[in-house]
Structures are given as C-alpha cells and as structure tokens.
C-alpha cells in the first residue's frame, strides 16, 4: 500500500514543459531514490511533492488525500542544511516542535532523546558553526524527522560531504531509517548512493523530464558496505548507467 503517490505531474516554465506526465509512488518504510542528470527536473518535482509549487497538471496524494499545492504535509529537507546560526543545535533541532506550539522545555527534551542516535550529543548547547559537515547534516535530518510527517523528501542531503563522511552517513542513514521506520524519497546524483540505499530507483531522463525507468534493488536490508563490492551492486550500477547513457537529450547537449 503506497502512502504517497504523484499522478501524471506536469510543470511548465514560461509555457514550456520542464517535467511531463511524471507518476511515482512510495510505500511505507520504503526508501526510493530519484536519479537523473542535472537540469532534468528532479528538484522541480520535489517542490511539487512538498507543496511549495503548484503543478500545471496532475495531483499529489497522501494516504488517499489530495495534498497538491499544500505545504507542510510532508517533511522536506533541502540541499542546504539551513541550520539557524543564532540558535543552539538543540533549539535548531526542536524548532518544528516549538513552531507547532510545544513549550520550549518539552520540545528540547523530546529532541534530546534522539541526540545520541543522530550523533550530535555533547554539542546540544553549542552553535551550528562548531559542527562538522556530517553533524550539521544529521542535525538537519533530525529536525526534518521531528517535523513528524509520514513522508520525508531529501534533496541531495549528502552531496556536499566528502567521500568518506558521505559513505559513513549512508550506512548510518540505513540503520536509522530502519530503526525509526522512515519512508523517504531521495534525490541523488550519485548512482552508487542510489543503489546502496534504495529499495527502488526511479530514473529521470529527457527534456521535458520524465521517469523513464524504474529499477527494483532486490537486495534485502540491512545492507552493509560489503554490498558495494558485490557483483549484484555492479550489475545494478551498470543497468542505471546504461539507461542514463541513452538519454538522448543530454547526449545532444554533450553532457
């Protein structure tokens, strides 16, 4: 049973479609990645799903409810961590609870429960400028989680991290996602990341962007880093690369 579905979404910019007839679904506790070249319209699609952009066609459903163009129905984390520099780490993380009207103290206590699991304990009362890139991203992720929506949209959350930190974050994310039962849609450029994390991968190609393939990564979770050197991993990676290689629009642009 899928909790989030997008039904033939179309978005035009200045009369020209940028994404066309895009449909997808997300099941409970599933992690689905959306891969595709830059400019194919992944972020545009996310803006529609998060309700900050009204599509020109199609609709977004959450548990059978139409949430098209309604912000605040799903948790959305952008590429930038957007931690407020003037709030302590714990106050940044507890922000969605405070905004919702929860007293500061209980909001902090609630956030504190997850501090260790999100690797920010010991830094609760410092300011974000003291955190490393990975910690900032985990703090932002905890804040997104505490928004307490059923679906989480993550727009390249690890893309700004160095390779080693990113690999650690991916393993960490798989564990946390499993523990907390997260259902997430994940944008990435990184095919390795997509194969390693996903239950399914959607591939967007062309101009206007469409979802042209869907690949199920049939490797049971929990996965560990040994999966990366597994031949099934290489097989999935080749499959995705082949599809992206045949993306004529981007080939014509010489990308």
């Amino acid at each position: 049973m899928s909790i989030l579905t997008a039904e033939s979404i179309t978005v035009n910019y200045f009369g020209k479609p940028v994404i066309e007839d895009v449909s997808l679904y997300l099941k409970k506790r599933e992690l689905v990645c959306l891969v595709g070249a830059s400019g194919v319209g992944k972020s545009t699609l996310f803006n529609v799903l998060s309700g900050t952009l009204a599509p020109d066609g199609g609709r977004v459903m959450l548990n059978g409810r139409d949430i098209t163009a309604r912000a605040g129905e799903v948790s959305y984390m952008q590429q930038k961590d957007l931690l407020l520099p003037f709030k302590t780490v714990i106050d940044n993380v507890a922000l969605p609870l405070v905004i919702r009207g929860e007293p500061k103290k209980s909001a902090r206590e609630k956030a504190q429960k997850y501090a260790a699991r999100f690797g920010i304990s010991g830094y609760e009362s410092t300011y974000p400028n003291r955190l490393s890139g990975g910690m900032r991203q985990r703090a932002a992720l905890l804040r997104t989680y505490l928004f307490e929506k059923e679906v989480i949209l993550l727009d390249e959350p690890f893309s700004a991290l160095d390779a080693i930190t990113r690999a650690k974050m991916q393993s960490w994310y798989l564990d946390v996602s499993d523990e907390l039962g997260l259902s997430a849609l994940f944008i990435t450029h990184d095919i390795d990341e997509a194969v390693f994390l996903s239950d399914r991968v959607y591939i967007m190609t062309g101009n206007p962007g469409r979802i042209t393939s869907e690949i199920k990564i049939d490797v049971k979770k929990p996965r560990d880093t040994s999966f990366i050197t597994d031949e099934r991993f290489v097989e999935y990676k080749r499959k995705i690369l082949d599809i992206l290689k045949n993306d004529n629009y981007f080939n014509s642009r010489g990308v």
Binding site: T52, G72, L82, I99, R100, F147
Partner: peptide, 26 residues
C-alpha cells in the same frame, strides 16, 4: 536567509514566529 524563511513557513510558522525565530535574531 530566504530559504530559512521558506523552511519556517513550510513548518507552519505564524508571522510573529517568523519575526521571533528568524528576523529579529538576523
């Protein structure tokens, strides 16, 4: 930060909350 303002609005922040949580400290 314009993106931070969008984030707060997405959390359902009121105008007053936008001032107390972002605009005044900024």
């Amino acid at each position: 930060d314009e993106d931070a303002l969008t984030l707060l609005r997405a959390m359902g922040a009121s105008r007053l909350q936008i001032y107390t949580h972002i605009k005044l400290p900024s």
